[in-house]
């Protein structure tokens, strides 16, 4: 049942992800991206990462997407002409495809190696509690550092987006 659900989500997610890349109108791309993010969140739940699913929905599907849609509306529709970048499309797809094949290869190999190993038994624990336990003890310093990173990002964003911008 879980496998089936996951399969459905993956199918929907990959389809909408492709639509993000192919749709001509940025707003459509943004809306497809929201769907993709939700399917990813659903897979998080299936994998036992409820807290991250919530974060995914709130931060990604909520905050970041609102920001992106806001900017799309601010900038408006941009008609695109053929440019030099278009020239690299075939080679880009080939390169990315090769990368995909390689990653898939390594993943499959590691999975087959892992099949021999007994998976640690997941007791019926409170995932969120144990997750926060880990985050706030073992990874406290990275956590604090991340907060500083966010602060820097805030300051940088304000500086970049203020009306005068950075003049040369």
């Amino acid at each position: 049942m879980i496998t089936f659900l996951s399969f459905i989500f993956t199918l929907v997610g990959l389809t909408t992800a492709i639509l993000v890349v192919t749709s001509k109108v940025p707003m459509n791309a943004a809306l497809f991206l929201v769907v993709t993010l939700f399917t990813v969140a659903a897979n998080y739940v299936l994998l036992g990462a409820e807290f991250l699913a919530a974060v995914q929905v709130i931060v990604y599907a909520g905050a970041i997407m609102v920001l992106i849609i806001f900017v799309i509306q601010l900038v408006g529709f941009q008609p695109s002409k053929d440019g030099s970048v278009q020239k690299q499309t075939p080679i880009a797809i080939v390169a990315a495809g090769l990368l995909f094949v390689q990653i898939a290869f390594y993943t499959v190999r590691s999975l087959t190696q892992l099949n021999g190993i007994q998976k640690p038994v997941q007791a019926a624990v409170d995932h969120t509690a144990s997750f926060s336990q880990t985050l706030f003890t073992k990874y406290l310093l990275p956590f604090e550092t991340a907060s500083i990173l966010l602060l820097v990002a805030i300051v940088g964003t304000v500086l970049l987006a203020q009306h005068k911008g950075i003049r040369e």
């Binding site: 993956t10 993000v20 897979n43 990368l99 990653i103 898939a104």
Partner: peptide
């Protein structure tokens, strides 16, 4: 399945 999903997203994104 989720690994395939992740890899696929990576590929599409790139």
């Amino acid at each position: 399945i989720t690994l395939i999903f992740g890899t696929g997203l990576f590929f599409i994104g790139i």
